[in-house]
Computed example of a mutant assay.
Amino acid sequence: MLQNIINNIDLSKQYFQFTSDFKSLLLLLTPAAIHSEAEYVEFDALLTKLDDELRVGCFLFQQQKFTALQPNYT
């Protein structure tokens, strides 16, 4: 199960990196130049949400991993 979580986080990070790179290309072209201002606003909001979710997911995963390594004295 832990390996599945690691794999999912890795895939999500790769997807986020690809999407971030795509955002950079859009900004170079400018959303107005390619007539996508409305779509860009939604895209940017969703990308920000994904970034937040990945940060929380990575934090929770690290907490879980740390807890699993602690000795059980009971």
Score class of each variant (00 low, 15 high):
residue 23 K to F: 00
residue 70 Q to A: 09
residue 17 Q to P: 00
residue 31 P to L: 07
residue 33 A to H: 15
residue 23 K to V: 00
residue 2 L to N: 11
residue 12 S to G: 08
residue 65 K to A: 05
residue 71 P to D: 14
residue 15 Y to I: 10
residue 30 T to D: 14
residue 3 Q to T: 14
residue 5 I to R: 01
residue 6 I to N: 05
residue 47 L to R: 09
residue 36 S to V: 09
residue 34 I to W: 13
residue 73 Y to P: 15
residue 37 E to Q: 15
residue 73 Y to L: 15
residue 2 L to S: 08
residue 65 K to S: 06
residue 25 L to E: 06
residue 30 T to L: 11
residue 71 P to I: 13
residue 17 Q to A: 11
residue 42 E to W: 05
residue 1 M to L: 11
residue 40 Y to P: 02
residue 1 M to A: 11
residue 54 L to I: 13
residue 52 D to K: 09
residue 65 K to C: 02
residue 67 T to K: 10
residue 51 D to H: 07
residue 20 S to C: 00
residue 48 T to S: 09
residue 5 I to Q: 00
residue 54 L to M: 12
residue 63 Q to E: 12
residue 21 D to A: 06
residue 30 T to S: 15
residue 67 T to F: 09
residue 49 K to Q: 08
residue 13 K to W: 01
residue 30 T to I: 07
residue 41 V to Q: 13
residue 67 T to L: 10
residue 60 L to Q: 10
residue 68 A to E: 02
residue 13 K to L: 12
residue 14 Q to E: 14
residue 32 A to T: 15
residue 73 Y to C: 12
residue 66 F to Y: 03
residue 23 K to I: 00
residue 64 Q to T: 10
residue 29 L to F: 08
residue 57 G to I: 01
residue 72 N to P: 02
residue 40 Y to S: 04
residue 57 G to K: 01
residue 50 L to H: 12
residue 41 V to I: 12
residue 64 Q to M: 09
residue 8 N to Q: 09
residue 60 L to S: 04
residue 57 G to L: 09
residue 25 L to T: 02
residue 3 Q to W: 09
residue 8 N to A: 08
residue 42 E to F: 11
residue 15 Y to M: 06
residue 35 H to F: 13
residue 11 L to Q: 11
residue 46 L to I: 02
residue 17 Q to Y: 07
residue 26 L to R: 02
residue 44 D to N: 14
residue 32 A to Q: 15
residue 25 L to N: 06
residue 11 L to F: 06
residue 62 Q to V: 09
residue 11 L to C: 05
residue 69 L to N: 03
residue 59 F to R: 09
residue 59 F to T: 05
residue 73 Y to F: 14
residue 15 Y to L: 12
residue 5 I to G: 00
residue 66 F to K: 11
residue 25 L to V: 03
residue 71 P to G: 13
residue 44 D to M: 05
residue 29 L to D: 06
residue 73 Y to S: 13
residue 1 M to T: 10
residue 20 S to W: 02
residue 15 Y to D: 04
residue 52 D to W: 01
residue 41 V to T: 13
residue 34 I to H: 15
residue 35 H to R: 15
residue 53 E to N: 04
residue 52 D to C: 03
residue 57 G to R: 01
residue 10 D to N: 04
residue 50 L to F: 07
residue 60 L to T: 05
residue 2 L to G: 11
residue 44 D to E: 15
residue 65 K to L: 11
residue 33 A to W: 08
residue 72 N to R: 15
residue 2 L to I: 06
residue 24 S to L: 08
residue 68 A to I: 00
residue 41 V to A: 13
residue 41 V to R: 12
residue 9 I to R: 04
residue 23 K to E: 11
residue 71 P to F: 14
residue 18 F to A: 14
residue 55 R to D: 06
residue 58 C to P: 00
residue 60 L to A: 04
